[in-house]
Amino acid sequence: MTKESLEQAVTRLKSGDKGAFDYIYDSTYKVVFFVVHSVVRQRETAEDVVQDVYITAFRNMDKFDGGNTLAWLTTIAKRLALNAYKRNKREKPTDFQTDGEKYGSTELPSAESMGLIAEAEKILSSEDFEIVVMCAIAGYRRREVAKLMDMPVSTVTHRYTTALKKLKRIVDGVDDE
């Protein structure tokens, strides 16, 4: 699951090989989903946005210059997720404090009730959260993440372990209570 092979798959898709779609989707959807989810904070909305992300990406494939595919998808994902978040807020004005579960919330409950991923979304910077998703959930190797995010492996390792330590402190805190 490397940047190079993703780019090769994009090239194949551009040249009409629809079989490359599976590879691109399977390699990226976990990261794209959680990037979107970290903004909209609601599973159903996140799924709809993920669908829009891939449709937008594949329909504009010709405009893609063949650079970092995952970065391109996450950029589209962030933009569409933010639009969806704003739209939800505008269309369905609600009290997030009381109806947060339904529409997404800025004030999240504890790790115990909302889960560790929600805590990670809340306490980590978006870059650190992406690193955690790529390493721990999507199964990318740290060297691959370093390539994808254009940063040294040591930086990725440091930020990843620091992020996990932060999450560990939350888990320990919940366990202690």
Binding site: D22, Y25, Y29, K30, F33, F34, H37, R43, A46, E47, V50, Q51, Y54, I55, F58, G115, L116, I117, A120, V132, A136, I137, T161, L164, L167, K168, V171
Partner: peptide, 25 residues
């Protein structure tokens, strides 16, 4: 750390979209 990673993975499995989304796309 492995425990944290395992917990993240476990949670992610329950949240990630299933194969129907892929087919829709």
């Amino acid at each position: 750390m492995n425990k944290i990673e395992r917990r993240l993975k476990r949670e992610a499995r329950t949240m990630l979209p299933d194969a129907t989304l892929k087919e829709r796309i």
